[in-house]
Nucleic acid binder design. Structure first.
Lengths: 152, 152
DNA sequence: TTGTTTGCAAAAAGTTTGCATAATC
DNA sequence: GATTATGCAAACTTTTTGCAAACAA
C-alpha cells in the first residue's frame, strides 16, 4: 500500500550496488521523484523487516541497502574503492554458523558476514588516475565522495 | 605515552565482554577514575588502529570494544540478550575468505564476521523473570538498559 | 469518513573536533 | 620550553519522531 514506496523499490532495483538512504533519495529527487528523507527511511525500514533488502554498514556506520535477489539471503564482496558489490557463495559459512550454534548451545543464532576488498578495476590501475575516491576506508584529507554505478 | 590511556586499557581488560565507549567511561568514573568522554574515544580509536581491541557494532550502530587476546584476530558469538561474548573458532571462515579473494581477483580482502544468538542462560529461563533486557535487538516499548558482567 | 502515509522540522544518539588548559619529556 | 594529551562544549552525521496536511479505502 504505497506510491513513493513503490518508487523507492523501483529506484533501488535500478542500483546494482549498495546505496545509502540519502543517496537513494538524491537519485529519486534528481529523477524528478520528489520524496521526503523520512519517507525513504521508513520505506527502507519496512523493506528490511520483510526481507526485501540486504543491509550492510560502511566504515562510518552508515547503512547501505541493496535489493535482495529472489533466491534469498546473500552475502557480498564489496569493493572498498568503487563500491561495486558481488554476491558470493557462502554455503560454507552458513554451515559453520549452524555448527557453532549446535556446539555452544546458543539459540537463534544469526550471522552477519561482510567481505570487502579492492576489485580488479580499482587495484589494477598502475597510476592512481581515474580511481574513484574510497568510501569504505577512513577518508584522508579530501575525499569529496565516490563514483557510483547506478542506473536510476 | 599515557596515563588515562593506561586506565582505559586496564578497565577494558577487566571486562570480559564488549562494552561501548560510554559504558567504559561510566565504569571508570564509577571507579573514581575521572576521565573525559572524548579521551575515551581517542584512546579506543588508537587501540583499534594498533589492533589492541576487537570492535563490533550492535543493532543501533554503536561501537562496542573488547580487548583482543594476545593470539590475534578473533571472531565472537555474542548473546543478544545479556551481551556475553564467546570467542569462536573461525579457521573455516578465514580459509573461505582467502578462497573468495583468490577466486574473484579482489585484493586486500578483509572480512567482518559477527555471530549473535541467545546464550543458554538467556533462552533457558522458562519464565522471563530476571532475564535482562535485550540490547542487541531493536528495543520495544521500555528497555531501560541491560545487565553487564564487568569486573572493573 | 476513517485510518494510514507523507513531509517538514525538530529531536536523539553516538562520535568527532576546536581550543584553552594541563601534563609530559 | 616545546610538544602532546586532556577535557569541556559545540559541531556533525545519520536516523527517528511529532504532528499537521494529504492521501486512500
Amino acid at each position: 500500500m504505497t506510491r513513493q514506496r513503490r518508487a523507492v523499490l523501483r529506484t533501488l532495483a535500478g542500483c546494482q550496488d549498495f546505496v545509502s538512504a540519502q543517496e537513494l533519495r538524491a537519485l529519486m529527487v534528481a529523477d524528478a521523484h520528489s520524496i521526503g528523507l523520512a519517507t525513504v527511511y521508513r520505506a527502507l525500514r519496512g523493506l528490511e523487516a520483510e526481507g526485501g533488502v540486504d543491509v550492510v554498514r560502511d566504515e562510518s556506520g552508515e547503512r547501505l541497502y541493496r535489493r535482495r535477489p529472489a533466491d534469498g539471503h546473500r552475502h557480498y564482496l564489496i569493493c572498498r574503492c568503487c563500491g561495486s558489490s558481488l554476491p558470493v557463495d557462502s554455503e560454507v559459512v552458513e554451515q559453520w554458523a549452524d555448527r557453532i550454534a549446535a556446539d555452544t548451545g546458543f539459540a537463534a543464532v544469526k550471522h552477519r558476514v561482510e567481505l570487502t576488498g579492492l576489485c580488479t578495476d580499482c587495484h589494477t590501475t598502475e597510476d592512481q588516475e581515474g580511481v574513484p575516491p574510497c568510501r569504505w576506508e577512513p577518508a584522508h584529507e579530501d575525499s569529496p565522495g565516490r563514483a557510483r554505478s547506478c542506473a536510476s
